[in-house]
Design a protein around this nucleic acid. Structure first.
Lengths: 122, 122
DNA sequence: CCTCTGTCTTGATGTGTATCGAATCAGAGG
DNA sequence: CCTCTGATTCGATACACATCAAGACAGAGG
């Protein structure tokens, strides 16, 4: 559990939109794992369930029954999200609670944002 | 080439932020491949190079030399981006040009956006 | 201390993927 | 028609990954 996987410079301002400047090799290497973690339907749903949870957190016991998958498999996916820096876990008594790291989501959204950046030609 | 891989309802309004509502299984299945495609450092850089290109498009011949990878490998990654619906390709004479599908990027950014959505508790 | 429940770890297995070299295809220009 | 260059496809290989069953671990409550 440890709650300290954190492969992210969560503080780092990190990156103008990918549409504005070429992302560097380092930036790409740092951020790709997060997209990769979201690149599985199960994990994308888990991420959403966690991020949209009332109170900002969810018990694993509430996540698992939502899928036709075994406990270990869900646990594995949660670990992947943790290692990608997208969520934090905390044990309280028998149960483990997950919460989203919104700064990280915001970074990723910012990187993909297109907004009013027009094609420089046309 | 065909330029018509399009696994995307590019038109679909598609999805309030993942932080607001749980994404459905279908939505997750539809969008996860795009994140997966971005989940590789090489493809993330390619995506950025394409999306930030002057004139809105880049020649493969300008992309390949930027990496320490063979042509076939770059071609493979570009195909992955195409099949994920993130880019379009067009052949003109000897060269092939790629351009970003900004609506799709905007969708993905919207899904991850956190904005001013506060934790519903606290 | 024992047991029960919830969660994670381990080990095994089948599938997917990143990469390359070789071969192929698509135009351009003799 | 031949050849040259740019790009993709094919085949092979090595590695990563999703999944499960079985086992281990962590608290709670006898």
């Amino acid at each position: 559990m440890s709650n300290q996987e954190v492969p992210f410079d969560a503080a780092a301002p990190c990156c103008p939109p990918l549409v504005q400047r070429r992302v560097s090799g380092e930036t790409a290497a740092a951020l790709a794992p997060a997209f990769k973690a979201l690149g599985d339907p199960v994990r994308l749903r888990l991420m959403s369930m966690i991020a949209s949870a009332e109170g900002g957190e969810v018990c694993v016991c509430d996540l698992t029954p939502e899928f036709d998958l075994t406990g270990p498999t869900i646990s594995h996916h949660l670990k992947t999200l943790r290692e990608a820096g997208l969520v934090d876990a905390q044990r309280r008594g028998t149960w483990v609670y997950y919460r989203a790291r919104r700064e990280v989501l915001r970074q990723l959204a910012g990187l993909l944002s297109v907004e009013s950046v027009p094609v420089s030609r046309v």
